[in-house]
Structures are given as C-alpha cells and as structure tokens.
Amino acid sequence: MANIIDYIAWRGDLPFSVVPFNDIDSLILCQISYLDFGGIVSESFKECVTLKDAAERFRSAKDFSARRKVGAMINSLTADLLFAAAFSRRFGDVKVCGYTTRFDPKKEEQFSAMTFLTGDKHAFAVFRGTDDTIIGWKEDFNMGVLETVPSQIDALRYLTEAMKSIRTRFRTGGHSKGGNLSIYAAANIDPKFKKRISCVYNNDGPGFREETVASPCFRELAPKIRSFYPQLSIVGMLFSHAGSYSVVESEQSGIMQHDPFSWHLTKDGFVSLSGFDPASKWFHDTFNAWFLELTDAERSRFVTTLFKVLEATDAKTNSELEKNWWQNSAKIVGAFAKLDGPSRDNVIKAVQLLFQIGHRHWTQVQFLPSGDSKKNRR
C-alpha cells in the first residue's frame, strides 16, 4: 500500500488551487516539522523562505548528516519526505517561518513549532510531536497528571503570536504530542483569534485530563478537530479526547503504527477502517480506567517513578537507551529493585498493560467489539 511519499508522486504536480489542502497534506507538513531547521528558517513570522529553499539549505548544511537523524522513534525517511515535498509543485512554493525550538530538562519541556503559508489564504501552525528525548516522553505522561505542561503554555503563546503577525485564516496541527498541543492552543486562544481557525489536525496525539476535555472552550472547539489514529493506537489512547475521529489502516504492528509512514492512503485520502483493533480499544479502556482510579498524588508518583527508573541508565534519548540496551536493562532492573512497594506495583501494572496489548494484538482475541470510527467522545 502507498504512503505519504507516494502521495507526493501522485499529487505533487497539483497546486492547492486545483486540489485543496487536505488531511494528507497536513500529515506531511506535521512530519516534516520533526527536522531541525535551526539557522535555516527564521524565528520571525515576517521573514519567510520557501520550502524548496529551506530544503536546499538543509541539504547543504555542514551538519546535514546530523540534522537528518531524527532518532529511534521517528522514521529516518523524514528528510527524504522533505526533499520530495520541497521539489514538488504542490509544496515547493509553500512559505515557512516562525521556527522555534525549546528543550528544558529542569522544566521537563520539549517543544518546537513552525508555520507554513500554504498560498490558499491560510497559514498552518504546526507543533512538533514527541522527539527522541526521554524528557519529551515524560512530558507526554505529565499531561495526565498536571493541569498544563510547559509545552502547552508555549503552544498557546506561539499560536497567539503567529495569529497576531499573520492576518489570515489558520489551520493548526501536529503528530503525537503536537496534536495535543494544537488542540490545547486552539481551545484556549483568545476568542477573537479562535474565529479565524478553520481546522485543527490531531494525528495520534495523546489526550487530556477529563475535566479539561469537559471545559466549555474544548467543547466549542470540538467541531473543528480532525483526529486520526492508526488501527492499533497506544499513544493516542492515553487519557481523554474531544471531537470526532477516524481510524486509519497501518502496515506496522504495535506501537510502530504511531509512525505516519505506516499509514495507508490513496490519492484521495487515508484508508479508513470501521473501528480500532480490539487490542487498542482494550488498552484505552483498561489503562485509562486504572489511571483514573489513582489520586493526583498517586498519578504524579507513578510518572516520577517510571522515569526515575529510566533515568538510572543515564540515557538522555531513546537512541542512547536502545544503543546500549543490555547494559541499560541491568541498570533498569537495579533501579526497579530499589522501589518501594506501592511505586513498584504501579510500574508493574503499566508494564503489564503494555505486554497484554501486544499479546491481544498478535492473537487477535475479540475481547471487545470495535466502535464506530466516528464518535463524539472516547
């Protein structure tokens, strides 16, 4: 089946004036945002460069080999996607500006964003998803513990500044954590700006605390949210969500379905399914039911404990963790053995749920019927 690079081969010669901006175009630009455009795309919203020029600068950069490496959890074809898009008629003249990136271990924040001017009277503010850093993943889990995390606050600030500077209609979106950030920013932005937002694209992003989703600003935004999840979603099943959604067929297994390159599509859109794999729905219902039973203090302790175990390896990224896996495994076991009883029990519960979803996926046991792919709430 075809992927997002194949789509550019099919549609790359057609400008947005002929075939309007769609869900797949959104996903392509969201994936491109994982690349490091520091020194290539300006932080200013007033200084733009075409995507073609940005790609040429990216390829000619002295540290090109380092820039194209996006880590263990992000597809290595991302730079190839940039070049395919940049040298197509459809994306080449898209203007790029407002590139910003922030990484603060003390604040437990990983944040990056950039804005695309698509030439169809819209700007598209894209928030980067969880990158290769372990801090980035910890911030994901903090979304179920804290009312707000640092990257959500920065996303709201970024979208506000972008809409002040670029006086046109906006789309916003992201993949993984970027989808969560786009929803948070669009939901909480000043109403005078919210009226100019046409659509919010959430591609397998984690959810929010239940009380956040139930708030009036989220309910008001829900009709504008377009959420897409692979048939076996794990990241996207975390916590609570707002708005309707579609389930996309994927060629990968388990958590690797989180990779947008694995999502099947045609020239007209994603290959949609009637519902999630039973294992995915089981994980959503079981993990969130367990997590909601914890008090706020217990949730915080669980996240702190889980990542304290990982920090015992001294690895800062998933790539480092994977590279020295056997040595790091021993350190993880050692750190785990030192935990107190309640903390150890909660980590065991979370790990058991992840193993069980893998087992249920591979055996295809029908524990729960798949829901319809279009719902108001999960």
Rank of each mutant, 00 (worst) to 15 (best):
N3L: 11
I8H: 01
S17C: 07
V18F: 06
P20I: 06
S26P: 12
I28L: 12
L29Y: 07
I32S: 04
S33H: 06
S33G: 09
Y34E: 01
L35C: 03
I40V: 13
S42I: 12
S42N: 14
E43V: 05
F45Q: 09
E47R: 08
C48L: 14
K52Y: 07
D53H: 05
R57H: 09
A61V: 08
A61Q: 11
F64G: 09
K69S: 09
G71A: 10
A72W: 13
I74Y: 02
N75T: 08
A79H: 08
A85N: 02
F87E: 15
F87L: 15
S88R: 00
S88G: 02
R89I: 14
R90F: 04
V94Q: 02
R102P: 02
R102Y: 15
S112G: 14
S112R: 03
M114E: 03
A125E: 13
A125W: 14
A125G: 07
V126D: 01
G129I: 04
G129Y: 03
T133D: 05
W137K: 14
K138C: 06
F141H: 13
L156C: 15
L156M: 12
Y158D: 04
S165W: 02
S165R: 04
T168P: 03
H175T: 08
S176A: 09
S176Y: 05
K177R: 05
G179F: 00
L181Q: 03
F193E: 00
R196C: 11
I197F: 10
Y201L: 00
Y201H: 02
N202Y: 05
P206H: 08
G207V: 07
F208R: 00
E210H: 09
F218K: 00
F228Q: 04
Q231F: 12
I234M: 12
I234C: 13
M237I: 06
S240P: 07
S246K: 13
S246W: 06
V247Q: 08
P260Q: 11
F261I: 05
F261N: 11
T266K: 05
S272N: 10
S272A: 07
L273T: 10
S274E: 14
A279D: 01
F283P: 01
V303Q: 07
T305L: 04
K316Y: 07
L321Q: 01
N324Y: 15
W326M: 15
Q327G: 15
A330H: 07
I332Q: 05
I332N: 01
G341K: 14
G341F: 09
R344Q: 12
N346H: 14
Q352F: 03
I357C: 04
H361R: 10
T363L: 13
Q364E: 14
Q366Y: 05
K374W: 14
